[in-house]
Computed example of a mutant assay.
Amino acid sequence: MTTPLEVSGSESEAQPEAVLAGVGAKQIQGRSLGQIAWLRLRRDKVALTGGVIVVLLIVVAIVGPFLVQSPLTYHQDLIDPTYNRPNSGIWHTGISGEHWLGVEPGTGRDMLARIVHGARISLLVAFLATLLSVVIGVVLGITAGYFGRWVDTVISRAMDAFLAFPLLLFAIALVGVVSDGAFGLKGNGLRVSVLVFVIGFFNWPYIGRVIRGQTLSLREREFVDAARSLGARNGYILFKELLPNLVAPILVYSTLLIPTNILFEAALSFLGVGVIPPTPSWGGMLTLAVPIYSSDPMYMIVPGLAIFITVLAFNLLGDGLRDALDPRAK
């Protein structure tokens, strides 16, 4: 029979118990999934830059119109009557201490004021349309993925039909039909409502397909079986068990859907079915800039850069959120 080895004094000081006793005051704290995602996002400087720009754009859209002059104020004294363009500033743009981005050719309206007011229209339409698309897409996507069978077939074929719908032609036709008024709305209130409906209602299949695919995977997980074994109803499983696990893809694809809606709103305004002039919008400013581009390129460059920076910032933020919320990312 062997005897246990004796431990010398120097060796006893290196025992795990002794080491752990010395660090007992420093507890090891776990991190939630949200904290892990935030740490990943903080390391992505490009995504953070996009997020900062997005926050600044939202602040400008909310507060900016109260800080700048009216976008409808004409400054004919700044326009050269011979060439119908600004008579001062770099390259005859009208840039000065009072008009930081110059003035509009022909009318002399302040470009900065029109860009700021246009940001409110573009972001308002994009956010409301995205919200409508997300609500419809999430509800129908999670329903199709969870129930399957004929429910999945009907919703999936509806997605295919909406994706094949000529959305641009429908928007132009719808604005022409309800141009005078509908549902108690007139003017720009009606136009904004039509834009939100057209963009949001017909774009839900994009996020709906993503949610359906995620639900098909989640419905086979153990926590769903456990909820069924405890007698949970389908509504509880859908919105209490499955929906919280879909927050990450919903958030990511929402941030990627917003820039798409901004571009679509600008395209509709460019074609003349957006907000009614003289209310400024980025797409409408590009429309007015086309015939005078050769004499005043700044009038096209400024709204073009506004659209480009906004879309780029949302895309960078969306890509960063996707990497941060992906559990397989390192």
Rank of each mutant, 00 (worst) to 15 (best):
W100N: 09
G272I: 02
P277Y: 07
I95D: 10
F223C: 09
G141Y: 06
Y206G: 14
V210L: 11
V178F: 15
P278T: 09
G200D: 03
V275F: 01
G106K: 09
E17N: 12
A144W: 04
G9C: 08
S254P: 07
D180S: 15
L163S: 06
L48K: 00
I262N: 03
V273P: 14
L112P: 12
V68S: 06
D180G: 12
V247F: 14
V154F: 15
V290G: 05
W38L: 15
A182H: 12
V103I: 13
P280K: 05
L263I: 11
S32Y: 06
A161M: 15
V224C: 03
E13F: 12
G118Q: 07
V175W: 10
A144C: 05
P16T: 02
L263T: 10
D180W: 10
G145F: 05
A329L: 15
A306M: 03
L246N: 04
Y83Q: 14
L312S: 05
W91H: 12
I250E: 09
V59P: 09
A158H: 09
L56R: 11
L140N: 02
L230C: 08
L325E: 04
L124Q: 13
D80S: 11
A306W: 02
S12M: 12
G24V: 12
L317D: 02
G50E: 05
A161D: 06
L251V: 14
E220L: 13
I58K: 03
H75C: 11
L257H: 01
V19N: 06
L5Q: 13
W150D: 00
G9W: 12
R191S: 10
V63C: 00
L5C: 08
Q76R: 13
P105M: 05
I155W: 11
G97M: 09
G208P: 03
V54S: 01
A18N: 15
